[in-house]
Amino acid sequence: MDKTEVDLIETYYEQYCSYKSEIMFNYATDSFFDNIESISFCKEVINKIVVEHPIEDAVFEEDLKTEWFSYYNNLINKGHEYYLAYCIQAYKYLRKKKDPFEKYYDIILWVRESNTSTNDQRFFKTDFVRPIIDYILNSYKKESHIIHLIKRYCERIERFREFDNNNIKSERDLQKHFAKYLFDSGHDFYKEVDTCNGQLDFCILNNDEYLSSWQCDNGQYIVEVKMYRDQQQIKNGMVQLSAYLRQCQSHGCLLIYTREELEFVNVPENIVVLTAYVGEKQPSKRTNKISIDFKE
């Protein structure tokens, strides 16, 4: 996802909030969520939180038979992500099961201003829908911060020529250099993490809490480090990283140290490929690009 899509999400939400019709309320809400889930990053974030906190339809069937305050405290005490997962799945349940003329805000009663409120439609949009959108945008901002961090690292290497042909002995040396940069930048991370698919290079913690377990979990960003030798080696690295991300249900970066000018085609949506140039040529002299197609 990029800045254009962030702006598009906000545009969709502004349009949604501008609709006032009670009769068309459910239709407008469904159209809004369809638009949001048409953006791949949004769909991934929504699917991820639902997979992590699955809720059976029977739970909603039971909750809707009782007064909302009888389950609301238990709901919010399970944490913000669980609450959002509940909201998303409650909406999907209502969309599947309920009369389209029975307004969502007449069923989701805990977002009312009061029992006699006439602003139920507005409060549904601001207090039920908006937190879901904020969660998606915050997920993007956290990931964008880490991508920016790695880009700055690549720029620093090239600008200050921190490597030459003699002081790169192995990928392990590169990993140590990148680890020192993360540490000096104040970021917590795990290095050389064992998984059932092998040993990944870095899990960068992408949230506000330090996780006590090494396991890949919500809020972690995976980085795999490679020193470019040939195209097949980089393609194999992409296959390796993709396997880690499927296991971790995460996003990641393939960080390539190279003495060649590289370009990339058909990069998977959940992966960013960045290069750190460690050669001796000035930018104006790097005229020949090696193109790597990840679908070939």
Rank of each mutant, 00 (worst) to 15 (best):
E162F: 04
N207H: 00
F69V: 13
V278S: 10
V129S: 03
T4D: 05
D99M: 01
Y71P: 14
Y105T: 04
I88F: 03
E280R: 09
T29Y: 09
T118M: 07
D34H: 12
Y86C: 03
S213Q: 05
C154D: 10
D7K: 00
T11Q: 11
H187T: 13
Q15D: 05
N218L: 07
G252E: 05
T275D: 01
T287G: 09
L64I: 15
N47T: 07
F189M: 06
Q247L: 07
K151P: 13
N167A: 08
F69K: 10
L205E: 13
Y13F: 10
K96P: 10
V272T: 14
D127V: 01
D230C: 02
P268S: 04
Y16A: 09
E14W: 00
I23Q: 04
Y244N: 09
P131E: 08
Y228D: 14
S21P: 06
Q240Y: 04
E81D: 14
K103L: 06
E263A: 03
F183A: 14
K151E: 12
M227K: 15
K235F: 06
E296M: 06
E162V: 15
I292C: 02
D293R: 02
Y82I: 07
Y277V: 15
A90P: 03
F101P: 08
D293N: 14
K285V: 09
N115G: 11
K151D: 12
I234L: 13
M227L: 06
Y12L: 03
K289I: 04
Q282L: 03
C196Y: 11
I76P: 07
V45D: 11
T275L: 01
Y257Q: 10
C42P: 02
R161L: 10
D217C: 15
I292T: 10
E155K: 01
K142A: 11
